[in-house]
Write a protein that binds this DNA or RNA. Structure first.
Length: 243
DNA sequence: GTAGGGCTATAC
DNA sequence: GTATAGCCCTAC
């Protein structure tokens, strides 16, 4: 699987270690250049010192999703395959258009892709839909676009330069080239590709944290990224509650 | 604008 | 059939 050859190595200036991690993918062959260089952007006394929950988990105390810490080491069990055990048909989407469940039934409304489907993504499409809004008013689903090694490296560089979580800033950095990515795309990529780092920076996250993919910590567990200083208007401590 | 959970296409 | 990655949606 993925290996983390993070080389603590020559701690650079400011005591910030220059790290190297091998970015092998579990399901796809490693690109030609599979080594990313990481550099912790901010000095930190201890890995956990700056950790501060930015959001409160959706999981209610009584929620079956709430799993013990030990479960973090397992695959996304906390994200339970609702779509596999629920109403949807794995790999086939919903059985039919009529299988679209109401929000009160499914928890929240989702757009269903179907032939001739007419819906638009609505105003909330801004986040990830903006990048390819050229699709038109009744925007079709954004085509899946795999992240290249180069893009990933840009993301890493951006995180090191601007701090994890400053996706918009990273995206705006002229020196970083992304292929029509949105801030959300950056966040999602970071979340899926560097689950360990994501978990370190966002302890509340319970999804997209495969236990098999670890590209973001050193063998000794030290993080490759540093969380930027929390914003003063940190809303992370609050979290929506499920109906 | 960002975090976080969910859905689903795709690879294996 | 399952795991992963990418996209979607919504709360804040």
């Amino acid at each position: 699987m993925s290996t983390n050859t993070g080389a603590p190595a020559d701690s650079g200036k400011n005591g910030m270690p220059t790290l190297t991690v091998t970015a092998c993918k579990a399901t796809m062959p490693p690109p030609a250049t599979s080594t990313f260089s990481f550099k912790a952007p901010f000095p930190v006394a201890s890995p956990g010192a700056m950790l501060k929950p930015r959001r409160v988990s959706l999981a209610l105390p009584s929620s079956p999703r709430l799993v013990p810490d030990s479960a973090w080491n397992f695959r996304d069990d906390t994200g339970i395959d609702a779509h596999r055990t629920g109403h949807s048909n794995p790999g086939q989407g919903y059985e039919s258009d009529t299988d679209v469940l109401l929000p009160e039934k499914r928890g929240k409304m989702r757009r269903i892709a179907s032939d001739g489907d007419d819906f638009t993504l609505g105003s909330t499409m801004g986040a990830s839909g903006s990048a390819e809004s050229a699709a038109g008013p009744s925007s079709e689903k954004k085509q899946r676009k795999k992240w290249t090694t180069e893009e990933t490296q840009m993301l890493v560089d951006g995180c090191n330069k601007h701090g994890v979580g400053n996706w918009k800033t990273i995206l705006s950095d002229k020196s970083l080239k992304f292929d029509s990515r949105s801030p959300v795309d950056l966040k999602d990529r970071f979340r899926t590709y560097f689950p360990d780092a994501y978990r370190l920076h966002y302890p509340n996250a319970k999804t997209h944290l495969s236990s098999k993919i670890r590209r973001s910590t050193l063998p000794d567990g030290k993080p490759l990224f540093e969380r930027p200083a929390p914003r003063s208007d940190d809303r992370s401590l609050r979290r929506r509650t499920k109906p």
